[in-house]
Simulated assay, not measured.
Amino acid sequence: MMRRLLTSILIGLCLTFMMTATVYATTEEMFEKQAEIDQILFEEKSGELEAKGIIVTHTASLEDKIEIGIADFTKEKAQYFYDLLGKEEVIIVAGEQAVAFGADGGPADNNLVEDNAAMEATEEGAAAKEKESSKILYVLGAGVIVLGAGIAFILRKKTNVKG
């Protein structure tokens, strides 16, 4: 009875770890795809988008697609993105242009400019934290597997001694 319970717990922990690692890999893959699309939209095609009057409000990594929000959504604008990026990889939605508010609740001063170096440092720090958290996840998973193997070894030894 105890052996079945421990075996069930061990299998549950192992399956949980395996599924978590798979989801993480998929998410990482989608973040990379989003970065590629951001490069295309905000750097390579920014002039073309501006000439067409298309404003991209956001991109977001979903489970299996990249969401692209555009202001003044029309089917023609959406089709432009589907032709450019492929329908299987993106979903186009209506987006709203963000407006920054000042401390008084009114629109923020347009003279405020984001410091790109600070933003890049923040992104690098986030990437480092993400890598560190993935290391912790893998070490934890390895620990669960070693612990499970130890429990299985002890249980097998006990059953062999009794038998």
Rank of each mutant, 00 (worst) to 15 (best):
F31Q: 00
G102D: 03
G141H: 06
M1Q: 09
K131F: 07
G69D: 10
N111V: 08
R156C: 12
L112G: 07
I68C: 03
E36D: 10
G95A: 04
G102M: 02
M2E: 13
A35V: 10
A94T: 12
V113A: 01
E48V: 09
L84W: 04
E48R: 00
E130N: 08
E32C: 03
E36W: 06
K52A: 08
N110G: 02
I154L: 09
S133P: 09
V161Q: 12
A142G: 14
V139A: 04
A103R: 06
A149G: 12
E88G: 05
A25V: 10
D104T: 10
G95E: 04
L147D: 10
K65H: 11
G148E: 07
I70D: 01
E124T: 10
G102F: 02
D72S: 08
D83F: 03
Q79T: 14
S134N: 08
G125F: 15
F42D: 09
K33P: 04
M19S: 09
I68L: 03
T57D: 01
V161R: 14
G163P: 07
G143H: 05
K157R: 14
A71K: 11
C14R: 07
E48N: 06
T20A: 06
K162A: 15
E67D: 11
E88N: 09
F73M: 08
F31Y: 11
L41P: 03
A21P: 08
R156Y: 14
E124M: 14
L85K: 02
L84I: 05
A60L: 13
I136N: 01
G150C: 12
A103S: 07
L10S: 11
E120P: 06
G148C: 02
D64M: 03
G47H: 05
M2Y: 15
E67R: 10
P107N: 02
E132M: 13
G106D: 10
L15M: 02
E120V: 14
G125W: 15
L147G: 15
N111T: 15
V90M: 01
L155S: 12
D83G: 00
Q34A: 04
E76D: 07
V56Y: 01
A98D: 05
E88A: 03
I54P: 00
G150W: 08
A121Q: 11
E114H: 00
A126G: 10
L13M: 11
M18L: 12
Q34N: 09
A60D: 15
A152F: 15
A78M: 06
K45N: 01
S46F: 05
I151F: 13
H58I: 07
F101W: 05
T159S: 13
E89R: 13
L62W: 12
G150K: 06
F42G: 06
E36S: 03
E123T: 10
K87V: 10
M30E: 00
Y82P: 06
K157C: 08
V161A: 15
V161E: 15
K162L: 13
